[in-house]
Design a protein around this nucleic acid. Structure first.
Lengths: 101, 101
DNA sequence: GCGTCCAATGCTGTTTCGGTATGGCCGACA
DNA sequence: TGTCGGCCATACCGAAACAGCATTGGACGC
């Protein structure tokens, strides 16, 4: 259909979850960092992998290790989050400067 | 705390909704384009404005017109969506080339 | 074998979300 | 002036999504 490669069902929440897990190499720790529990975070990763159609982590005995696809995604993920942050700040700045003076 | 300006509750869905409305200058039309109905889309915009703490559109008699804050956000929004698209494609490419050969 | 550490899964209560129906506003037109 | 049509916002409700708890299952160390 004409919807092309639509942004799919990837959500910012899933992306944040992914980055946290990638950095901690451990779902439980990442969960705490996100003020979440392990099961939903585990499902976030699964949902993301499912949506992307690619496995992002290797489940090892000790935790989670990034696969090549995961490393590629991580670079984009960080940029996306940074861009969202920038967008929020920009808007608040523009609106603030108009409202404030 | 260190969560600072965290990506907040802005969601990709809201961003997509915003872009559609910005381009159509009309909630109903944008809704159809997104395979949605007008009320939820109207709520997306409100939620986004609420989250950002800034009004993005001026509600005029004929529809929606971007305010300065909205124009600023639109530029970021397009970049975010493009970045997400790129991320998805990259991952599928990396995973595909490894799986396929 | 037993205890430990990890991620995954089953289940459930709550929250979120989209759709329908409706309201309020304003201009066009007769 | 009264009606019609187009617009966005709100009220309400049923369905889907989500987080948390409890538990399972796999792998290592002792």
């Amino acid at each position: 259909m004409a919807d092309s490669a639509r942004v799919a069902d990837v959500s910012l929440t899933h992306i944040q979850s992914f980055v946290a897990v990638a950095e901690e190499c451990n779902v439980g720790r990442a969960a705490r960092r996100l003020h979440l529990t392990q099961p939903p975070l585990s499902r976030h990763i699964q949902a993301l992998e499912d949506e992307l159609g690619a496995r992002l982590f290797e489940r090892t005995r000790g935790g989670m290790r990034l696969l090549p696809a995961g490393e590629a995604f991580l670079r984009h993920a960080r940029r996306i989050l940074a861009e969202v942050d920038a967008a929020v700040l920009t808007v608040r700045d523009v609106a603030g400067s108009r409202a404030g003076g």
